[in-house]
């Protein structure tokens, strides 16, 4: 579980935001993209697969990760974009395994189809990283009904942090919520139902609503 999230059976909610660090590496076609993808930092891959969930959107992009959006919008390669969008990072133990899958998908695509058009100048893919700044919210819960009340109250970045960031970036087997419900509140069934959600299909707000509904049903 994330540092400080569970203290003596009390769940402490954190919230977060990210500042963007630029790597200066850019790809103007799919081959450059593939080469950079093989060596870019795991932080960059995490950032581009997840910033959708942390960033507020007026109109959400068509796909929830930057790789799929660039492939569709800039390269015009819809079928590759769909394959990249369909990747669920939670299926992989770590970001290296996720990287291998992304590389495999693009390599397979290049074997089957001619390479897509290059990006127009100014539309290159720019590889960035996020630095996450984490803040205590002062909100905590030790019982299930307090937990669900707190979950309604916290900023959506808190859901993002304890769910996506804790599990994949910090290399945990479970997200913070599932682990707390399972180990501290002895609710393995509920934890299992939350763990089986498909979080890459919705915005963080929708994910929050789904978790709340599952807990309220359990209560």
């Amino acid at each position: 579980m994330t540092q400080g999230a569970n203290v003596n059976g009390t769940f402490k909610f954190f919230e977060c935001f990210a500042i963007i660090r630029l790597t200066g590496r850019r790809a103007s076609d799919i081959l450059e993209f593939l080469e950079i993808l093989k060596t870019i930092s795991t932080e960059s891959i995490f950032h581009h697969m997840h910033q959708y969930f942390l960033k507020p959107h007026i109109i959400p992009p068509e796909f929830p990760n930057d790789f799929a959006v660039w492939t569709a919008e800039t390269l015009g390669e819809q079928n590759l974009a769909e394959a990249l969008a369909n990747v669920n990072p939670f299926e992989f133990g770590d970001i290296e395994a996720l990287r291998a899958e992304l590389v495999r998908i693009i390599t397979e695509h290049l074997k089957r189809y001619p390479p897509p058009r290059p990006a127009l100048p100014g539309r290159e893919f720019l590889f960035n990283e996020g630095v996450t700044i984490v803040l205590p919210t002062g909100i905590e819960a030790a019982r299930l009904h307090d937990f669900v009340r707190a979950l309604k109250e916290v900023d959506s970045s808190s859901v993002y942090f304890h769910f996506y960031e804790a599990r994949l970036r910090l290399g945990k087997e479970q997200d913070d919520f599932t682990q707390f419900l399972d180990s501290c509140l002895d609710c393995p069934g509920l934890a299992g139902r939350i763990k089986s959600l498909d979080p890459y299909m919705y915005s963080t707000e929708v994910l929050r609503a789904k978790i709340i509904r599952l807990i309220e049903e359990a209560l």
Binding site: Q3, E129, V131, I133, E165, R169
Partner: peptide
């Protein structure tokens, strides 16, 4: 962040 060089998650 520059005072915590190299850290990707800063509390």
């Amino acid at each position: 962040a520059l005072e915590h060089k190299g850290e990707k998650v800063i509390y």
